[in-house]
Nucleic acid binder design. Structure first.
Length: 670
RNA sequence: AGCGGGGUGGGGUAGCACGGAUAUCCCGACGGGCUCAUAACCCGUAGAUCCAUGGUUCAAAUCCAUGCCCCGCUACCA
């Protein structure tokens, strides 16, 4: 299992820019956070708490190994003609002596005459722009007028692979089979027809081109491989890094060049085409160029999205749970149980605190935890060791009943879990494990060991022995889902070593009579519903952080400059008036906007306001609101707005400003 | 508005790509049992016009059409 942090993603560049920090530093921080999160959730790679171990590696795309692997693929694809160079015209800043990304060109919008439109899009009228359309363009960096120069870039020739990808994806989807979302997204792309895509950019942050390319064509020293080309290569480079660290530098070949190796890629649905089109195209070209049988993905089980209380996770809406937040408050296994049994396998799922508590208390604790605990405490109290079943001579009927009613269904359920895991149906797998626990509870109940103990201790010993076998089986079966509890149970059963070093069970386990049991302890803690009460308040930030030190590694992000002051005269240039809302109409062409008619004292203004998500028309009609009266008019999706309605905003909540007592429209606000 | 996902007993869900007869599972409610166990476990009962309407069919939760509603992405938030 390999994974890692993408260090060159666009969000990183954008955020680093916003915070005024170096992108490398920010990426490093994210990577450290990812590693910490994995640890907190007990996702380990073979060495507890470490991002590296005998089973795998969590690395990043900032390593020299990754760069050279990416360059090698680039090189091979180039040689094979799957990457081509061609020139395109792009804005260039003669003062800063560099090409400018679209958004670094500013100028006057050709559509609405807004003077500060960006090259990719105008913030005023919202139209998507080409930097060349801007009037009076200037560079954001130096203010100089950009020139248009030809710049050369490399393009990945995806069309070369269209037919191959089509055949491969259909075959694979039918054979594996792929999930419907995976094949659907893929088909969409293929039927649209693949187009060549630029894989270099005029930027300074990212993976460099191969040295010989830079030497041969020095301009490419100032360009970088664009992230979407290079990030997916991380799968291969991580495998190589892992082999290196294992001291077996060629070990990765067993995983990449053996036709029997099956590659599974786990991702969110928004990432599907990268893993079913682009990356496979690169692999095909690379395999062709190297003559090595690099393996294409076997399965790409993409998850849908998990929302939070009905809408998407969003920091600004106070709709956010971080791994840190939740693992600080609750057992990682409880979190894992909830996520596994509520996984967005085939459709979007929802995270709800009430459900989380319910599932933990009523399912995890009550069924799974309880069986382990009741069995262990009983056995431990009576014998302190695994009792010997052999003194009991069961009748034929009795033995058959044990087998038919209890062991057989458990075995069947176990086989079902195995099938589900093979097919990447983790939700079903988790449910199957729960079913085993339910069978187990039934078995314990029916056998009534607390009664037989008094009348037939040998029989009781045999029955508890059977229950302990089932408990051991459960420990093995729950290991991938609930690693910590599984290990605890394993230990309490007196088993040596780690449950995680055991092979997957294909039958009810056996357990050695006479094996010493350890002091039983509860496997899962119940959650007091009050704990999440304060997390449920609507509109409030869901996760305050009383004990969460915000990002320990993070230095203060923005130096706080002295606040900008304005003079009274400056403030007085803004004319604020009280207005009465006379009518509220939805904007005909925009979902978030209202068109309001507001009486500001003898004059009716038409305003466009982005309040539709926050306030109903009824709440607005007749209200006294505060309006900026001398704002220059603007055109919003075809409707003129003659002013601006003031509103207060906090964490995504928006409330229009109103006056407390009634005062006539037109009243000045000072 | 464009594109994607979805609407199944009180809550959460499975089934839907390949229509089939009593619609799955967990929880809750109600009734009973048990007392080894974290008031946990076990058994039973009730509870669903499978969003609506129309269509295809011997047969539709499942296929087709239209509509309504929810969620996400994108645009719009003066």
């Amino acid at each position: 299992m390999v994974s890692g942090s993408d260090m060159h993603g666009t969000p990183i560049t954008v955020k680093a820019e916003a915070e005024g920090v170096a992108p490398e530093a920010l990426a490093k921080r994210f990577n450290a956070q990812h590693i910490q999160d994995l640890r907190a959730l007990h996702i380990d790679f073979g060495a507890p708490g470490q991002p590296y171990g005998p089973w795998g590696l969590f690395t990043s795309t900032a390593t020299p190994n990754h760069a050279s692997t990416a360059q090698d693929i680039f090189r091979v694809l180039l040689k094979k003609g799957h990457i081509g160079k061609r020139s395109m015209r792009a804005p260039y800043d003669p003062k800063a002596k560099r090409f400018l990304p679209d958004r670094y060109v500013e100028g006057t919008c050709p559509h609405c005459a807004f003077p500060d439109a960006r090259g990719d899009q105008c913030d005023n009228c919202g139209k998507t722009l080409d930097p060349q359309e801007l009037k009076n363009p200037r560079s954001k960096l130096s203010g100089a007028a950009p020139e248009y120069r030809d710049t050369e870039h490399y393009f990945l020739q995806l069309p070369h692979f269209q037919a191959q990808l089509q055949a491969w994806s259909e075959a694979q989807a039918a054979k594996v089979p792929w999930r419907s979302n995976t094949i659907n997204f893929t088909r969409n792309w293929l039927t649209e027809g693949l187009k060549e895509r630029a894989i270099t950019r005029d930027i300074a942050y990212g993976v460099r081109l191969p040295p010989e390319v830079e030497q041969h064509d020095p301009q490419f020293a100032d360009k970088r491989i664009y992230v979407w080309f290079e990030a997916v290569i991380g799968y291969l480079s991580a495998a190589k890094e892992w082999s290196q660290r294992q001291g077996q530098p060629d070990e990765w070949q067993r995983w990449w060049l053996d036709p029997h190796a099956r590659h599974f890629y786990f991702l969110g649905k928004d990432n599907i085409p990268f893993h079913t089109i682009i990356w496979p195209a690169m692999i095909l070209g690379y395999a062709e160029g190297t003559g090595q049988p690099y393996q294409l993905p076997y399965d790409v089980p993409a998850n849908e999205f998990m929302n939070f209380s009905g809408s998407k996770l969003s920091k600004s809406r106070g709709n956010l749970i971080t791994v840190q937040d939740i693992t600080q408050r609750f057992q990682a296994d409880a979190v894992r149980y909830y996520l596994a049994s509520n996984m967005p396998d085939t459709r979007d799922a929802d995270f709800a605190w009430e459900e989380f508590v319910r599932k933990t208390n009523e399912e995890l604790v009550a069924a799974l935890g309880n069986f382990g605990h009741r069995t262990l405490t009983f056995a431990h109290k009576q014998w302190g060791q695994v009792p010997d079943p052999r003194k009991h001579r069961p009748s034929g009927d009795e033995a058959q009943k044990l087998e038919e009613s209890y062991l057989k269904p458990i075995r069947a359920e176990l086989a079902a879990v195995t099938r589900h895991l093979d097919a990447c149906r983790f939700k079903d797998g988790m449910k199957g494990v729960m079913q085993v626990a339910m069978h187990a509870n039934r078995m314990f109940n029916d056998l009534q060991p607390w009664k037989t103990l008094k009348v037939d201790p040998d029989r009781c010993a045999r029955d508890i022995h059977e229950c302990l076998r089932v408990a051991k089986t459960l420990s093995l079966a729950m290991a991938p889902f609930l690693p910590q509890a599984a290990e605890q149970l394993w230990h309490q059963l007196g088993e040596p070593g780690s449950v995680h070093a055991q092979p997957w069970p294909d039958d009810v386990a056996t357990i050695a009579a006479g094996q010493a049991l350890r002091e039983p302890r509860v496997l899962f803690a119940k959650i007091d519903p009050d704990t999440v009460k304060d997390l449920l308040e609507p509109g409030e930030p869901k996760m305050t952080q009383p004990h969460a030190p915000a990002q320990p590694a993070a230095p203060p992000m923005t130096p706080s400059p002295t606040p900008d002051r304005i003079t009274l005269a400056e403030f007085q240039r803004v004319q604020l008036r009280v207005g009465v809302v006379r009518s509220v109409e939805p904007h005909p062409k925009a979902d978030k906007l209202y068109v309001l008619k507001v009486d500001i004292g003898g004059e009716e203004r038409q305003l466009v306001a982005g309040l539709r998500a926050h306030v109903t028309p009824e709440e607005l009609l007749g209200r006294h609101v505060v309006v900026v009266a001398n704002l220059e008019p603007a055109n919003l999706r075809g409707v003129e707005s003659q002013g601006m309605l003031l509103a207060a905003e906090l964490d995504g909540k928006v409330v229009p400003l109103t006056t407390q007592g009634d005062i006539g429209p037109g009243a000045k606000v000072r």
